[in-house]
Each structure stands twice: as structure tokens, then as C-alpha cells.
Design a protein around this nucleic acid. Structure first.
Length: 456
DNA sequence: CGAGTTTGACCCGCGC
DNA sequence: GCGCGGGTCAAACTCG
């Protein structure tokens, strides 16, 4: 930098690295600069015609050289420094604008992917084809959606310092609740953003659970022994539990060695068409897209349970008669149950594809599922009816349930709110049950990678 | 033959 | 300490 007008060199360097347009002028540099030099600071600005930053020139010294000589050099230096600060401020503002822009674009992309997934659920013939697309979308969604798996257990107790943070997270939930009824593009964007915030909050909150073990239980009608959930399981035991003639099967996740996630599958004693699947533990590996959706869903449910963050009445006011949270103190561990077996008065209509119009009408409305998409009804006369396409997964049921119907989220909130009060009277043995719309499923395909179905 | 299931035995926590 | 019940283990078994 010796003996040359360093400011000009600096500006050249700035042009060469527009992504980091920092102007650095030291006093040493200006000692070498000729007194008559014109100092030019370029301010970054948003270039609308192309991506990245553009520049506008700001000439700081329009004075004549003779006038410059009259002013102390220190004043000019201060002015330059001031403009440096302004420039940095502008730069940060521009970067923020760009990030916001990218974020919005990403959200739109995610929304589009979610809509495509819903369409895919409605048209099972495209199911396989769409799976590949979804996988690509899912890679992108990884940056937004939480990767927290089914549950977190054995986490350290929540400290008092986290209470304020939790309150903030609670506000995120409330914000989502409060926007449920508004339906416009802008609101969709806001909701999507808030959902993302909630997902992050979920991830944080779940890790702060005060309970050693917590579970998510899902009740769904199914004639088959298992409902696929995107994961690979191995049965390691079976037991006849008390007060239930139906055996309880124990499964362990085999997608990775040492994965601690387990699940129990048992039919309801009162209604044997209801299959109760209970998840426990936290995957120690990456999940396939379907299982990841399930993980997000169950984590969200569990998070609501663990945070007790639903003192807001926004959720309860939107409950429809089919979403009736109930409380039980029979569970050994804190358990949140998503009951997808009860019918509701949802305005969403059950769309029957024309190809199945000969089948009788079933009373269970669904979260946008068609009979075809959920693989139902399947009579014994049609045992080979699109087995792969009709593999309704638990992911489909629960994810669609929550994404399609905000009332289920509200129901969760309401249930947790009730639970919060209930836990004051009972110790860690409270079970929450949240009833959603009735969905009945019948799957013909086994679980991923599992060659055999358990004979429970 | 390997992967997955079955099933009786065993372990462990909890209540009395 | 004892019994009960839920959960897990592991050898035997099944299946492709």
C-alpha cells in the first residue's frame, strides 16, 4: 500500500468482492494518499436487475482541491469513517432484505410442496411418482422443518431460566392459533413462518422436557396389525396386558444400530377395530421423509404436552364437536394420545373417487383423504387392490390431520390446557387424549423393509 | 442361511 | 419381603 492512492485500490477490491463490500481505509493509507485525491465511497444497494448487490457511487468530496487543503485531514477522515458506518448499515440492511426475500421464496416453495403432497394423497395413482418429487422437496424442507425425531427422552430438567423462553415459544403457538381463521396469501405466509418458528420452538422445547419419559400414542382404525409410519421395526416381544385380551406387541426401530426408539401396538379392548400405536424414544439417525413428517407431528404434539403452553383460549374456541379432549390417569408415563377414530362435523367433505362409486358410503370424514387414497374400503373380494398405492401410513393420517385441520391443533392445545390443570392433582401418570376426525384405514403393504407382518 | 417372529423366562419397579 | 404387571431377553422357530 505504500506510495499509491490506496483508496482507489480499496475501491477496486470492493468491486472485485461485491458480496462483502467493506471499505477499509486506515490512517496510514491516507498518509500516503495525495491531498488532491477525491474520496469516493460506494454504497451497496439492492440491484433489482440481478441477484446480489449493486453499487451506487457517493462522491464525498466535491470541493475543489484548494478547498480540501484548507480543511484538516482529520475532518475528512471522520467523514469517511462516518460514511463507512453508514455503508455498513446499508450493507446489513441489504443483506437482511435479501435473506428475507430468499426466506419468503423458500416458504412459498415449501407451501407448494405441501400442496402437492396433499394432491398426491388425493390421487393415489400418482403416489409412487410423487414420492420421488417429494424426496427432492424434502431435501429443501430440511432447512426449515425440524429434524427432531419422535420424542426426546431423558433430557435434563427444565431450569427456571427457560421459563421466559418458553413463554416466548408459547406466544408463537398462540400467534398460529390466532391466524387460523384468516385465509389470504399474506396470512398463509405469516402462518407458514410462524409454523416454522413453532417447529423450531418444538425442537427446543422437547429437549427441555422435565419428564424422564413421555410418549405419543395414536389411535386409528385399522384392520391390519400395523400401520406403516415410514420407519423400519423389529418385533422383540409380545405380552397380554391386564384388562385387555388383545396382545400388546413391542417393536424396536431397526433403521440404525442402537436406535432407542420403540413402539407398542395394541388393539383397543373395547373396540378391536381401533389400533393404538405408542411411540417412545428418540431416533439416533436420519429419517426417511415420511417418518420425518411423523416425527414432526408427534414432536409437535408432545411439545404441547410438555410445555403446557396453552393457557390461551384461542384453541378451545375453535374446537368442533368432534374434537373432545379427555383426560385419563391410567398411563404409566405422560402420554399424549391423538385419537383419529372419532367422527366430526368438519366441513371438509369426504370425496369419493368415481372408480369406487359402487362402494357404500362410510360415515368417517377425513382430512382430505379419499376412500381410494386411504385404501378403503377394501373388501375380501379385492385383496390385491393396489397394495402399494394403498399403503396408508400413520404419517398420512396424522400429518394430514394436523395440517389439514387446525382444529386438531386447537384440540391438542385444549387438551394440554386441561392436562396442565390435571397434573396438579395427579403425578406423572396423566394421559391426554385428543380426538380428531375419524379416519379409517386398511393397509395391505407391510412396513418399510419388513418382510413379514406380525401375527398379533 | 440370514432375517425376522414367537414365546417362555427373566428383570425390575411399584404397591401393599 | 412378596406378589403383580409391564417390559425385555434370547433361544427356538419360520420363511424366503
Amino acid at each position: 500500500m505504500e506510495g499509491e492512492p490506496s483508496v482507489c485500490r480499496e475501491l477496486l477490491q470492493i468491486h472485485e468482492r461485491p458480496s462483502h463490500p467493506q471499505l477499509h481505509i486506515s490512517e496510514e493509507d491516507n498518509k500516503d494518499a495525495a491531498p488532491s485525491s477525491t474520496f469516493t465511497v460506494e454504497e451497496p444497494c439492492i440491484n433489482n436487475s440481478s441477484e446480489g448487490f449493486g453499487f451506487i457511487s457517493l462522491n464525498l468530496n466535491a470541493e475543489q482541491p484548494s478547498q480540501i487543503e484548507e480543511k484538516p485531514l482529520k475532518l475528512r477522515m471522520l467523514r469517511i469513517k462516518l460514511d463507512q458506518v453508514n455503508e455498513e448499515n446499508q450493507n446489513l440492511r441489504a443483506m437482511l432484505h435479501q435473506i428475507t426475500k430468499n426466506y419468503t421464496a423458500l416458504q412459498s416453495h415449501l407451501l407448494l410442496a405441501m400442496e402437492q403432497q396433499q394432491q398426491q394423497l388425493s390421487s393415489p395413482r400418482n403416489h409412487h411418482h410423487q414420492l420421488q418429487k417429494d424426496e427432492r422437496h424434502d431435501d429443501m424442507a430440511d432447512a426449515v422443518l425440524p429434524t427432531r425425531q419422535f420424542l426426546d427422552i431423558n433430557k435434563p430438567p427444565q431450569s427456571d431460566d427457560n421459563i421466559q423462553e418458553n413463554n416466548n415459544k408459547t406466544n408463537v403457538s398462540r400467534k398460529i392459533m390466532s391466524t387460523e381463521n384468516v385465509d389470504c396469501d399474506e396470512t398463509k405466509q405469516v402462518k407458514l413462518k410462524l409454523t416454522s418458528e413453532l417447529a423450531k420452538a418444538v425442537e427446543d422445547q422437547v429437549s427441555e422436557t422435565t419428564w424422564k419419559k413421555a410418549r405419543v400414542s395414536i389411535r386409528a382404525r385399522s384392520d391390519t396389525p400395523l400401520i406403516g409410519d415410514g420407519c423400519q421395526w423389529r418385533k422383540y416381544g409380545q405380552k397380554i396386558a391386564k384388562n385387555n385380551p388383545c396382545p400388546r406387541a413391542y417393536y424396536r426401530c431397526t433403521m440404525a444400530i442402537g436406535c432407542p426408539v420403540r413402539k407398542q401396538v395394541q388393539r383397543c379392548a373395547n373396540d378391536k377395530t381401533i389400533l393404538i400405536t405408542t411411540y417412545e424414544g428418540n431416533h439416533n439417525h436420519s429419517l426417511p421423509p415420511a417418518a420425518r413428517a411423523m416425527a414432526s407431528t408427534t414432536s409437535a404434539a408432545l411439545s404441547m404436552l410438555l410445555s403446557g403452553s396453552t393457557t390461551s383460549t384461542a384453541g378451545t374456541t375453535q374446537l368442533n364437536p368432534g374434537l373432545i379432549p379427555t383426560l385419563s390417569t391410567s398411563a404409566s408415563y405422560p402420554t399424549i394420545t391423538l385419537d383419529l377414530t372419532r367422527p366430526s362435523n368438519s366441513p371438509m367433505q369426504f370425496q369419493r373417487p368415481s372408480s369406487l362409486s359402487s362402494f357404500p358410503s362410510f360415515p368417517w370424514p377425513s382430512y382430505g383423504f379419499t376412500e381410494q387414497s386411504i385404501g378403503f374400503p377394501l373388501s375380501s373380494k379385492q385383496p390385491t387392490m393396489m397394495a402399494s398405492e394403498k399403503n396408508l401410513t400413520l404419517v398420512d393420517i396424522v400429518s394430514a390431520a394436523i395440517s389439514k385441520d387446525p382444529n386438531l391443533t386447537a384440540a391438542l392445545a385444549s387438551a394440554v390446557s386441561s392436562f396442565k390443570g390435571a397434573t396438579q392433582n395427579s403425578n406423572n401418570c396423566t394421559q391426554i387424549s385428543v380426538s380428531g376426525h375419524g379416519t379409517t384405514s386398511k393397509t395391505s403393504a407391510p412396513l418399510l423393509g419388513s418382510g413379514k407382518l406380525p401375527q398379533s
